[in-house]
């Protein structure tokens, strides 16, 4: 893992943030909405935010229940499913690269609920980005 050189890599509009939230923060509906609000309002200072995506644990994400039923799964299976869904990650899509790179620079090392944020810029053609923001 190396530090980003934004002069060479400034080609993406999606910022991925790590070490910002954990599954237990995302269970309560009110808390979840507050977290989205906090992220949206802070990121708006860097550019126009087109979308914020914070995957929720399977137990709280009914949209995934058509293929998986958390009631019949073991805790280990649920944990695995959450890992694959990217629970714990935060994706923010900006309208332009400038907003995204500013956010990568400014938010790295900031604290969020006592956790130090890791930021990285994602390429538009990254399969993970396509999955998260499909109609981009």
């Amino acid at each position: 893992i190396v530090a980003v050189d934004l002069n060479k890599e400034a080609n993406g509009r999606v910022v991925l943030m790590l070490n910002m939230v954990v599954a237990e923060d995302l269970m309560d509906d009110v808390e979840y909405e507050e977290i989205l609000d906090d992220i949206r309002s802070e990121c708006s200072g860097f550019g126009q935010v087109l979308g914020v995506y914070v995957p929720r644990p399977l137990k709280k994400d009914k949209s995934r229940w058509d293929t998986m039923d958390p009631n019949t799964m073991s805790p280990a299976e649920i944990a695995k499913a959450d890992e694959i869904a990217g629970v714990g990650r935060v994706y923010v899509k900006f309208s332009d690269t400038e907003g995204a790179t500013t956010a990568v620079r400014q938010l790295a090392g900031r604290s969020f609920a006592g956790r130090t944020i890791i930021t990285t810029l994602m390429r538009e053609d990254d399969p993970d980005v396509q999955r998260v923001f499909p109609n981009a």
């Binding site: 190396v2 990285t120 390429r123």
Partner: peptide, 10 residues
């Protein structure tokens, strides 16, 4: 431990 990291080839 850098906090603004590269995701190229990671």
């Amino acid at each position: 431990l850098p906090t603004a990291i590269s995701s190229t080839n990671i």
